[in-house]
């Protein structure tokens, strides 16, 4: 094998590595956040996101460059469903819920606000039926377009719109019930 051939071979082997690294750098936050908002516990979110990218890594050659985000989100939906089932079984077996892990943030006041806001958001989202929750999270939090959601969830765009309207109604009703007169000071800031 000559030098040029060896160079081409090594670059070909390196290409998938570069691509998966780029995928992680670009979409890891999206995947992790989606998993959390879709019901994966914070203690499981890192493992779940690893699983999503592991699937992507194994099927890297099947993923079109233009549909990387859709593929990752579709995989995240399935992985989230798996983790929810697993935790539900565990909860049923243990008879109680596992507590959220405490965020090791050095600022206790900010930590409290963020923690309270996210905890409340999770409780509100828990009140949503699964199909409405998925559409709501992808649209309102991950800021996907309705066409993208239609592609990811594989439902018609009209169904996306109707689910989103119903999800908003439930979300607003739940928020108003959970925080009558309560104000959350949280403003968008840096990540943890």
């Amino acid at each position: 094998m000559d030098a040029s051939h060896a160079s081409r071979a090594s670059s070909a082997e390196a290409a998938p590595g570069r691509r998966i690294a780029s995928l992680v750098a670009t979409h890891h936050a999206l995947v992790w956040r989606s998993l959390r908002r879709l019901g994966v516990w914070e203690s499981d979110a890192d493992d779940a996101s690893q699983r999503v990218f592991l699937v992507a890594h194994r099927r890297l050659n099947d993923i079109e460059p233009a549909s990387e985000r859709s593929f990752l989100l579709q995989t995240a939906l399935r992985v989230a469903a798996d983790f929810r089932r697993s935790r539900r079984r565990q909860r049923e077996e243990n008879g109680h819920s596992l507590p959220f892990l405490v965020d090791p943030n050095p600022n206790p006041e900010e930590l409290l606000d963020k923690w309270r806001a996210r905890a409340m958001l999770d409780r509100v989202l828990d009140a949503l039926p699964r199909d409405l929750r998925t559409v709501f999270v992808l649209f309102e939090i991950e800021e996907l377009t309705m066409a993208e959601i239609s592609n990811v969830v594989e439902i018609p765009a009209g169904t996306v719109a109707s689910r989103l309207r119903r999800a908003r109604a439930v979300f607003r009703a739940t928020v108003s019930q959970m925080s009558p007169g309560q104000s959350i000071k949280y403003e968008a800031g840096g990540k943890r």
Binding site: A29, W32, R33, D46, S179, A188, G190
Partner: peptide
């Protein structure tokens, strides 16, 4: 309140260590 909750959700994300762990695992 709704805005605060949605902003909290958008601002959430993995730690740098978690991202590094994914890369190391891959």
């Amino acid at each position: 309140t709704e805005k605060a909750l949605l902003l909290a959700g958008r601002a959430d994300g993995p730690s740098k260590e978690a991202t590094a762990a994914v890369l190391a695992m891959l």
